[in-house]
Write a protein that binds this DNA or RNA. Structure first.
Length: 552
RNA sequence: GCGCCCAUAGCUCAAUUGGAUAGAGCAUUUGACUACGAAUCAAAAGGCUGGAGGUUCAACUCCUCUUGGGCGCGCCA
C-alpha cells in the first residue's frame, strides 16, 4: 500500500506544480522500485516527462518538485535526490515501513483487499473442457491460471463467480455416445471396427465395461447420458484434487435444448433478437451474424441452411445470458488455439450494447509436453495424451500449480515430465514453502520464553534497522503492488516471482539476523516481522492455490 | 496467401507495460552447519535481448522490414 500512498501524494504535487506552469492536463508518470545499485526506495520519472512538456531542463524541474515534496510530505519522505538522468529518488521514513508491518499483522488475511470494489460482479469462465474425455495438461494450465485469477480478484474485493461452461450438446456428443456403444458391442463379442474419428481413449472402454458389468440392455441405454456422467465425475475429481472449485456449472443444454412455453430456446430467442435488430441476416438459406460490423474479418453462420444451429449460436446466447445475470465484467480463459474466436465474440458483446472491454479474453499458450527429449503428442481423439491427473500424481498439486503459474500466459510452456519428477526437492515452490516452515520453527521455539512482548503497541520497531530487515519489510508491503499488477494484466504469474523474491529476502534475513536472542525487545520485534512474513507468504501462496505446510 | 502469439545466460523462464549496470531457478566451479530447519546462505562464471532499420532524453518493451518456431483462418466444436 506504500507505493499507492506515495503515488497519490505525488499526483497532487505534480498536478499542482504543472498548474503553476500553466498546464492543466494530468501527467501519467511512474513510481517504481529502482535497480539494485541505486540506494533508494522509489524512483519517480515525472521530472523527465515534465521537462519535455514545458521545455525545460529535467534537473531543474526535478529540483523544484523535490522542494515541494520535502515540504509537503515530511512525515513520509526521509530523503529526495536527483539522479544523473533526471529521476527523483525517494527514501521513505522507516516509520512508514513499520506502520505497514503493523497493518499486515493487524489485517492478516484481509491485508491488501479493497472493499470499494464490492459492487462489481465479475465472471471468470475457465476450463470448460468438453465432457468427452479426461482433462489433459493443457486444461491444467487454464485451470491454474483461471482459479488463481479468480482468487486474486476476490481478494481485491470483487464479487467473483467461477463458471465452467459445459458443451453437452452437438455433434461431438453423438460421436461420444456412438463410441461407447461400439465399445459395448465389441465387449459383447460383436465384430465391429472402431471408427478412426471416434474417441479412442481407454476411458471409453471403461465406461462400456461398467455398463456391461451392470448387466444393462445394450439396445436400451442412453449412451450419451452414461458417458457424460462418468466423464464429468472424472473431471470433477481431477479439479477437486487440483484445488479448483467452481461456483457454477453451466450446461449448454440450458440455452440450446431447454424450451419455454412457446417452444423456443434461448438460442432461438437470441437469434431472433439479433435478426430483428439487423445484426443478423439470411443468406443462402442460412442465418448469418454480421460480426464484420464490429471488427471481425468475416460474417459467421449462426444457423446452417439445414436448420441446425452452429456452436457459435450457443456461445452468443451464453454470453448474452452472462450479462443478463448481472455480470458487468467477463473474463474468459481460452487456449491460444482459439484466438481466432476472440474477434467474433467481442463483436457479439458490442451487439448487446456493452463495450468490448467488458469481456477480457485471456489466451494462454499451449503446453508442449516433453519426456526427456521426446515430445509427447496430445490429442483427445487418439487418447495418447498425458492427463492432468497423471501430472498431479507425479509431482503433487502444489508443485504442479506453481509450475503452471510461473510463466506469462502468453509464453508457451514446456513441461518436462522427467524434470518435474526430479524436481521434488529443487522445485521453486519448496523454496517459498520453506520460508513458512522456518518461521514456524522459530515461533514454536519462542513459546518457551516468558519475556516476549506480544502487544504490538509495545514493540520497539526501531530495532529492525538492518538492511535485510528493511528490504524484507519493503517486500512485504509490495504485496499490494503485485496484486495491482495482476489485476491490471489479468495474470497471476507475478505472484510466483514476487514470492520467490520474498523467500530470497527472508532467507538472507535469516542468515544475518538471529531472531531468538537474549535481547527481549529485539527478539519481540523480529518475531513480529516473522509474523508478517508468515501472513504474506500464506496469503500469496493461497492466491496461487498452493498450501503452506508448517513442517516439510 | 491472410491473421494472432513467441524468440532474452548452456537449459527453463522473469523483467512492475518506455527508465538507470537486463534478473531468477536449474546445470558448472568455490566456500559456510558446535544456538532459531543447510530444502539455506556467500561468491565465481555465464548476454550485441534472433537480425536490420526507425521513433525517443531513454527501447527487451513501441513502429517498419526480415529470419526461425507455435497456432488459427469451416454452414466443425
Amino acid at each position: 500500500m506504500i507505493k499507492q500512498h506515495i503515488t497519490n501524494h505525488l499526483n497532487k504535487i505534480v498536478a499542482g506544480y504543472l498548474r503553476t506552469k500553466g498546464i492543466m492536463d494530468s501527467l501519467k508518470f511512474s513510481v517504481k522500485v529502482p535497480p539494485k545499485n541505486i540506494d533508494a526506495d522509489f524512483a519517480v520519472n515525472a521530472a523527465m516527462l515534465i521537462a519535455k512538456k514545458i521545455k525545460t531542463n529535467p534537473r531543474i524541474a526535478a529540483q523544484e518538485l523535490i522542494d515541494i515534496i520535502v515540504k509537503d510530505i515530511p512525515d513520509i519522505i526521509e530523503k529526495a535526490e536527483i539522479s544523473g538522468t533526471g529521476f527523483i529518488n525517494l527514501r521513505i521514513k522507516d516509520e512508514v515501513l513499520y506502520k505497514e508491518l503493523c497493518a499486515i499483522v493487524n489485517e492478516k488475511n484481509k491485508y491488501g483487499s479493497f472493499t470499494e470494489n464490492n459492487k462489481e460482479k465479475i465472471m471468470v469462465e475457465f476450463v470448460s473442457a468438453n465432457p468427452t474425455g479426461p482433462l489433459h495438461i493443457g486444461h491444467g494450465r487454464g485451470a491454474a491460471i483461471g482459479d488463481s485469477l479468480a482468487r486474486i480478484l476476490k481478494h481485491l474485493g470483487y464479487n467473483v463467480t467461477k463458471e465452467y461452461y459445459l458443451n453437452d450438446v452437438g455433434n461431438q456428443m453423438l460421436v461420444l455416445a456412438k463410441s461407447v456403444e461400439i465399445r459395448c458391442r465389441q465387449l459383447k463379442g460383436e465384430k465391429i471396427d472402431f471408427p478412426v474419428d471416434h474417441y479412442q481413449g481407454d476411458y471409453i472402454i471403461d465406461i462400456a465395461k461398467r455398463l456391461i458389468l451392470e448387466g444393462r440392455d445394450i439396445n436400451h441405454i442412453d449412451f450419451k447420458y452414461e458417458a457424460v456422467k462418468d466423464i464429468l465425475k472424472t473431471i470433477e475429481d481431477d479439479l477437486k484434487d487440483f484445488d479448483v472449485e467452481f461456483d457454477n456449472w453451466f450446461s449448454e443444454a440450458n440455452i440450446a435444448a431447454v424450451k419455454d412455453k412457446d417452444g423456443k430456446t434461448e438460442v432461438d430467442k437470441t437469434s431472433m433478437y439479433l435478426l430483428a435488430k439487423e445484426d443478423a441476416y439470411i443468406k443462402d438459406d442460412a442465418l448469418w451474424l454480421a460480426t464484420t460490423k464490429f471488427g471481425d474479418d468475416k460474417d459467421r453462420v449462426l444457423k446452417r441452411s439445414d436448420g441446425r444451429y452452429t456452436y457459435l449460436a450457443s456461445d452468443v446466447a451464453y454470453h448474452k445470458n452472462k450479462f443478463e445475470r448481472g455480470f458487468t465484467k467477463l473474463v474468459n480463459l481460452w487456449g491460444a488455439d482459439h484466438h481466432g474466436y476472440v474477434a467474433r465474440i467481442k463483436a457479439c458483446i458490442k451487439m448487446f450494447g456493452f463495450s468490448k472491454e467488458a469481456l477480457n479474453v485471456i489466451l494462454y499458450q499451449l503446453v508442449s509436453l516433453v519426456r526427456g527429449r521426446q515430445p509427447v503428442a496430445m490429442s483427445t481423439r487418439t487418447g495418447e495424451f498425458v492427463t492432468l491427473r497423471e501430472v498431479i500424481d507425479e509431482v503433487g498439486k502444489d508443485a504442479c500449480r506453481f509450475f503452471f503459474l510461473l510463466r506469462d500466459p502468453d509464453s508457451q510452456l514446456e513441461f518436462d515430465l522427467e524434470l518435474a519428477k526430479k524436481q521434488s526437492s529443487e522445485n521453486p515452490v519448496f523454496y517459498v514453502q520453506y520460508v513458512n516452515a522456518r518461521c514456524n520453527s522459530i515461533v514454536k521455539e519462542s513459546t518457551n520464553r516468558s519475556d516476549i512482548i506480544t502487544d504490538i503497541k509495545n514493540i520497539n520497531f526501531d530495532l529492525l534497522n538492518t538492511k535485510e530487515e528493511r528490504d524484507l519489510i519493503k517486500q512485504l508491503a509490495a504485496f499490494c503492488d503485485t496484486l495491482a499488477m495482476s489485476e491490471k494484466t489479468m495474470s497471476p504469474h507475478y505472484f510466483t516471482t514476487y514470492l520467490m523474491e520474498l523467500a530470497d529476502m527472508y532467507h538472507k534475513f535469516y542468515e544475518k539476523c538471529r531472531v531468538l536472542t537474549d535481547d527481549s525487545n529485539l527478539t519481540s520485534a523480529r518475531l513480529k516481522l516473522i509474523e508478517g512474513v508468515m501472513i504474506i507468504v500464506k496469503n500469496g501462496l493461497s492466491l496461487l492455490g498452493v498450501s503452506t505446510p508448517d513442517k516439510m
